[in-house]
């Protein structure tokens, strides 16, 4: 298949830990088969920073904890035909969302002023124009843009990602066996 006929795929890690991307790499030698099926567009895997064209599939790891995450996620929605939330952070907020039951000011105070290991005599909370503003809460991806498929798991196993991608790329329904959809 020529490069032009291959499906284009983009991936990103928002408020995530890159564990889901690690899990994608965990497909081992099947990555050669994946390379037969797809061309990677914007992705930390190839370090392409900007979309170079329309993509068939976008993989979203992580939810949105700051305005930069929201911007990237909206950019993905704009450029991708199908968006897939991968991992618990994208589908429900995950570990970053542990702060969601605590008011934002308390979180900032604990992190930058009052925490037991913090040395910050001026009591300043980072507030540079270069820093994306933090959101009041961490939002799962589908609460920010429309998401077409969700693959939960922390991380979703390599088999889960592989089976779902191959089904999508070969125009088959994404019907995963019981063992492959897990929340842990």
């Amino acid at each position: 298949m020529g490069e032009n006929q291959k499906a284009r795929i983009a991936t990103t890690s928002l408020a995530g830990c890159f564990g889901c991307h690690m899990s994608l790499l965990d497909i081992d030698e099947r990555i050669l088969q994946l390379a037969e099926l797809v061309v990677f567009d914007k992705s930390p895997i190839n370090d392409i920073k900007q979309f170079t064209g329309r993509c068939d599939v976008g993989l979203i790891e992580g939810g949105c904890c700051n305005e930069h995450n929201v911007e990237v996620l909206r950019d993905f929605r704009k450029h991708c035909d199908i968006l897939i939330s991968i991992g618990d952070c994208a589908t429900m907020g995950g570990i970053p969302a542990l702060r969601n039951t605590v008011p934002l000011q308390e979180c900032l105070d604990e992190a930058y002023r009052d925490g037991p290991s913090v040395h910050n005599p001026s009591g300043m909370i980072p507030n540079d124009v270069e820093l994306p503003l933090i959101l009041d809460k961490v939002y799962p991806a589908h609460e920010v843009v429309k998401i077409d498929y969700h693959l939960p798991g922390c991380p979703p196993s390599a088999d889960t990602l592989w089976e779902a991608l191959v089904a999508l790329l070969t125009a088959k329904p994404v019907e995963l066996p019981y063992e492959l959809v897990k929340y842990d």
Partner: peptide
């Protein structure tokens, strides 16, 4: 077959 809830998370403190 729930992969993500269709409702908005409440994040109540418990």
């Amino acid at each position: 077959g729930i992969t993500a809830p269709s409702f908005t998370y409440q994040w109540q403190k418990h």
